[in-house]
Design a protein around this nucleic acid. Structure first.
Lengths: 211, 211
DNA sequence: ACCTGAACACCGTTCAAGT
DNA sequence: ACCTGAACACCGTTCAAGT
């Protein structure tokens, strides 16, 4: 009765948290379970299937069923879901490599999409526009979390020699004008909140009729 | 003088276009160049360095220097850059796995960021807000292109048995109310344009003073 | 039903040796 | 300077065999 597949996914998740996604090989996973690599294939179709299972585990963890994110008006619920998702990726940065690769197809992923749909309907967004706005918001939220986890928002150690070259050639005019604001480090928590409130304003503006 | 590194990147890009990113191994790449795998390490630090070089090649291709995307007012330039980026990823879908992994650090990536900075400044966005809006827009645009290329926007073949189960249990209320709009297939070209115009409206609204 | 052992066709990378 | 050969320590997966 104790589903062997679940034990395998437990071990894979622990391995990924401890040593990163690259450390999750069929062989290493089998070792950790005290079993031969081939024994895994009885419960998992392939390594790709294993990774799909891993992503699903993460989504189970964050979908709001009887949690804070399920309370409040539509804006609270939408922002709550976004914050919970970001926090989940922060605790499992290895997931960044997987999150953009598969459609939201598992029952739990569909449930998360449904929370967004319901929030947008409650906000008064026309039904025709809801799926598009859902994709837009989820694309941004996943993108932000993945960018953070994979270092895309990191300071960016540009080769100073080349940078100076670009500056002197009269290039990078934008960077030059923004110099006062580019030196201070970014508070990504505050930035995420500002981005969210911008997106909520955008949702609100979609409830009014437009040409 | 003929830089050997450039020949290697040419071959790697061709290999990726023909057979996908997984086919780009040091051994296969060496084979294609008629050389021993170890010969590559004279011109490339590691496989990671090779992949960074590949991404850079893509960015060189799309940064607007004397092209359509460099013309027009700020909104045209911003939308042009987004469209060109999306088209680039569409022609090289293997890049999807790499685009979120490294900060925009190479000279060409910095140039692309600068085009966005300049557009936002011209739009009248306060300097303090420009870097945030640049990250927000680029995160969305990269996320959209990557989602498309990696199948996240694909129809989503949910297991019908499970889906029915969820429907009958009174779950997925959002999906149920949206059924009329969820059956027709999505025109992603039109959706991308609508998303872009929403983002441009958001930029405009940031030029007005807010609390 | 569930697991094992041996094997196949691959990886990235190091190191000493060649010219 | 540039390349090679052999080797190390890995991969995912197939297939026949064991209990």
């Amino acid at each position: 009765m104790a589903d062997r597949r679940e034990e395998i996914l437990d071990a894979a998740l622990a391995l990924a948290d401890e040593a990163g996604l690259d450390a999750v090989s069929m062989r290493a996973l089998a070792d950790r379970l005290g079993v031969t690599p081939m024994a895994l294939y009885r419960h998992v179709d392939s390594k790709a299937d294993l990774l799909d299972g891993l992503v699903d585990r993460l989504l189970v963890a964050f979908v709001p069923v009887n949690t804070d994110a399920a309370q409040g008006d539509w804006a609270d619920r939408l922002a709550g879901l976004a914050r919970t998702f970001r926090r989940t990726v922060q605790s499992h940065p290895w997931a960044a490599q997987l999150l953009f690769s598969r459609p939201a197809v598992t029952p739990d992923a569909v449930r998360a999409v449904d929370v967004l749909y319901s929030a947008l309907i409650e906000a008064g967004v026309p039904g025709r526009e809801v799926p598009r706005l859902e994709r837009m918001i989820s694309t941004f939220v996943i993108g932000f979390a993945v960018s953070e986890a994979s270092g895309r928002f990191a300071p960016g150690a540009v080769d100073p020699r080349r940078r100076r070259g670009q500056f002197c050639d009269g290039e990078l005019l934008g960077h030059r004008r923004l110099a006062p604001w580019l030196d201070s480090p970014t508070d990504l928590n505050a930035e995420f909140e500002r981005d969210l409130s911008d997106l909520l304003r955008l949702v609100e503006s979609t409830t009014r009729e437009r040409p």
